[in-house]
Simulated assay, not measured.
Amino acid sequence: MSSVPLPPLPPVPGVTDEEFEPAGRSMIELLDEDHDRLGRLCSRAATEPAASDVLVATLARHLAAEEQYLYPAVHSVLPDGPAIAERELAADADLLVALRRLHSTTDDTALWSITERIRRHAHRAATEIFPALREHCSHGELVRLGNRVEIARSAAPTRPHPGIPSTPPLDKIVDPALGVVDKVMDALSRRTTWEEDL
């Protein structure tokens, strides 16, 4: 198996990194749940205006987490990883532009476009990317990445910001800074950004 680019674990006497079994959920499980949630939100946004804001925020957080952890892992461990990561980053950049349009309009065609792009994005992940990662990464690596995805999502922007850096290390600096600004704007405008608050 190839090694995923992760910082070393703190030393534990008598335990190697390979023997350590981290707690948490795998990155694949978390991102797959996001894809399901995004599908539900697309359906709800067609009839509930508040769901559109939640869709925008959820997708912005999801894409930020994928750019920080999924695509670098894909790039590093899969034989054709660099090409896959480049393709997905380009698709995400287009998705952010479409998301900005949805965020600024109530146009039904914008929602339809986002829904179709999310459906294709989730399909590629489920049929191509996730199975390959399961084959090339250890369960412990996927859990350690999952822990980082959860942190990245909580610090990520809640609005689309096309054109900002989408690869490490800059995205890991810029995304949390924009996330703070977005969260302040959300609080001031009382914008709903979590599905459970709908």
Rank of each mutant, 00 (worst) to 15 (best):
Q68E: 09
T192H: 12
P168Q: 11
L59W: 06
H123R: 11
C42N: 06
D186W: 10
R134T: 14
H75C: 06
E88G: 07
L96A: 11
K172Q: 13
E48A: 08
P11H: 12
L170W: 14
G140M: 00
L63I: 15
A23C: 11
V4N: 04
A83C: 09
T109E: 10
D17A: 15
A122K: 00
A83K: 13
Q68D: 02
P160G: 05
L102R: 01
Y71C: 08
S3D: 09
E86C: 05
A98C: 12
D186F: 11
R144F: 05
P5N: 06
A50T: 13
H62F: 08
I173F: 13
E150Y: 10
R190H: 15
P168A: 14
T47R: 14
P11Y: 10
V180I: 15
V4F: 09
A45T: 01
A85Q: 04
P168W: 05
P72C: 08
R25A: 13
A187Q: 10
S166C: 12
A156T: 03
A152G: 06
A50M: 10
V4Q: 03
A51I: 01
H103A: 15
E21H: 14
V143Q: 03
D92S: 14
E135C: 14
E116Q: 15
P176V: 07
S104V: 10
G81A: 05
R25W: 13
E66R: 05
I118G: 04
T16G: 04
I84D: 05
V12W: 04
R25Q: 14
T106C: 06
V77R: 03
R44I: 03
R148G: 00
P49Y: 05
L95N: 08
G14A: 07
P72T: 07
A57I: 00
S154N: 13
G163Q: 03
P11G: 08
G179L: 06
D186R: 10
V56F: 02
L31I: 11
R37C: 05
P162F: 10
S2N: 13
V15A: 04
V77T: 02
E128L: 13
H75I: 00
H136I: 00
E150R: 15
A83N: 12
P22H: 10
A83H: 12
R119Q: 11
L145A: 02
W112N: 10
E86P: 03
H139D: 14
S52L: 01
L41R: 00
E18V: 14
V174F: 05
C137E: 02
L178M: 11
I173G: 09
V97E: 14
T109R: 08
A51V: 02
I114C: 02
I84K: 08
E128Y: 05
R153Y: 01
P79D: 15
A125M: 08
E19P: 01
R25F: 13
A152M: 09
I164H: 06
T192P: 10
A60I: 03
V184E: 07
